[in-house]
Amino acid sequence: MSAVQYRDITAAVTRSKGAPFVLEKARIREPHGAEVLVRIVATGMCHTDMIVRDQYYPVPLPAVLGHEGAGVVEAVGPQVQNLKVGDHVVLTYGYCGHCVSCDSGHASYCAEFYPRNFSGADAHGHHALMDKDNQPLNDHFFAQSSFATYAISQENNAIRVPKEAPLELLGPLGCGIQTGAGAVINSLKATPGSSFVAFGAGAVGLSAVLAARVAGCSTIVAVDLVESRLALAKELGATHTVNGRDADVIAQLKAITGGGANFALESTGNRHVLRNAIDSLGNLGTVGVVGAPPLGTTAEFDINDLLLGGKKIQGIVEGDSVPQKFIPQLVTLYLQGRFPFDKLVKLYDFKDINQAAADSEKGITLKPVIRIGM
């Protein structure tokens, strides 16, 4: 058996709970099986990167995070069938492809979702990355670990995109923007003429606003605490905005929607905001939940309000999308000018990754994207 071949890379390493990202020299092995090696052009930074850095989710450290990568295929494993060197790809979440959920078109609920995305290794417990001291780094974060100049992913979570699309902007389509847009289109299945309320006007919530416009919702409301975000929501297609600090948020929403919303999305991870989202629904309304609080967080609601109103609460992961179809669809909508998600993005150089994280946590930047290579 031939020796494993490695190449030198630079990676942003998280070595301990809450520690800053540190750019380090590392090595990555060549792809095996159905894997592809991707030269990362840019990677979005998502709330999940920060909560894993801070160990709200127990991913083993030291680790290379990053899970909204976009880049160019540099090498392919012997079992790769549909991708080739030079293809432009967006990297998305990992999934097995053969469990009941995957077989039914719901890969984001894969039976192996947690180990394939959060275990710090591949499906067999192996690492692709070594640090400068030849010690393994926990990797395969969301089946990619794209806070690095190169990343290994499976063929099924490397999604080919048109070369005319601006690759440095596309990474967030693999997670955050896919989550918000997919929640509206795939999960809630918002209908033309319906009413929709986005609780939280961050990158996910505003992606949902954009998708609600594409879906033909006639009333689109954004709720947030930050007036600049509410102003951007109006620019992106919201018909109304409400400041979450107002004492009469629910009354305002019911007046705007004519008695209660058909659809709502909670993206803040705040259990009190979730209660407001449920209370804002009209009869037979549905609220989608995408906000990720610390593990074990519970929430309360009025059971009779839920029961008598026929309301639904729906958990949503990754917008319940089929990435091979949905991500190219979002790219097409962007190229047509109908899904201007670039208005959410601010670009940072790789050396400024910690500034990007700080700006995201302070709410200064909606969706940081880290430029890693060209």
Rank of each mutant, 00 (worst) to 15 (best):
H106Q: 13
G244L: 12
L281K: 08
L265P: 01
S187L: 03
G174I: 10
G363S: 09
D103V: 00
V249D: 03
D103R: 15
M374T: 14
G77D: 08
T43W: 08
R371F: 04
A201R: 03
L306Q: 12
H47P: 06
K362E: 12
G120W: 11
G174F: 07
I220T: 01
G244A: 15
L91E: 06
A222Y: 02
F21I: 06
G319F: 05
V226H: 04
L188A: 15
F301N: 00
H98C: 06
T43A: 15
R229I: 03
V369A: 02
V317L: 15
D342M: 05
A261L: 09
A299F: 15
L265H: 01
L65V: 10
V13F: 05
R160L: 09
L169M: 11
H106V: 02
L225Q: 05
A211M: 02
L225K: 14
F21P: 00
Q81W: 03
V209D: 00
T286L: 05
A247P: 00
I250R: 02
G86Q: 07
C46M: 12
V184I: 13
A251C: 02
T298W: 00
Y348C: 07
K367W: 06
R213E: 00
D8I: 09
L170N: 07
I177N: 03
V89D: 08
P172N: 08
G94V: 10
G315Q: 09
L344Y: 02
D352F: 04
L65D: 05
N186K: 05
K312F: 09
G44I: 14
Y57I: 15
Q135G: 00
A75E: 15
A356L: 11
G373L: 05
V322L: 12
L335H: 01
V41Q: 05
H67P: 07
A255T: 11
T365Q: 06
P368M: 10
P20W: 04
D305L: 15
I159R: 04
D248H: 13
A208W: 01
V273D: 02
Y109P: 00
A183I: 03
H67W: 11
V72S: 03
P31L: 11
V4Q: 14
P60N: 10
H127S: 12
N134A: 12
S195G: 08
K163Q: 15
T149S: 14
G337V: 04
V223R: 00
A357M: 13
A231V: 14
F326Y: 15
M50K: 09
G310M: 12
L284D: 09
K351R: 13
I278L: 15
G18A: 06
P58E: 09
N82K: 15
A264V: 02
G337R: 11
A261P: 06
H67E: 10
C46A: 07
P115K: 12
T92I: 12
I316T: 13
N354R: 11
